[in-house]
Amino acid sequence: MSIIMAFIIGGLICLVGQLIMDLTPYKVTPAHILVGFVTGGAVLSALGLYGPLVKIGGAGATIPISGFGHLLAQGTLEAVRAKGLLGAFTGGITAGAAGIAAAVIFGFCMAVLFNPRG
């Protein structure tokens, strides 16, 4: 059941992104989409709107890049509660550490191992 919900929520988030790319008159590149969804996810999360989505969709809400924004925002909020002002600076990056490290390490390894095929 949770797999189906992940499919639906994950699909819907991507659908929104696709509609933004296709229906707006601006030239929306993947970079714009990724930046927009990270910040959007973080803001929604801080307003308490993204948490419920994660409860319903599981990976469907955490795997889209907006879930990364959610992770950053929740990490920051928790750290602010625990450590005060210092937490505002450490919380987000600590929470996102696993994803960032994985992306950099795997990215580097793949770049060393493979050549582009064109």
Binding site: V38, A46, L72, T76, L77, V80, G84, F89, G91, G92
Partner: peptide, 10 residues
Amino acid sequence: VSVLIGLIAY
């Protein structure tokens, strides 16, 4: 954004 959110929350 995450630092801003932290500052606002604080």
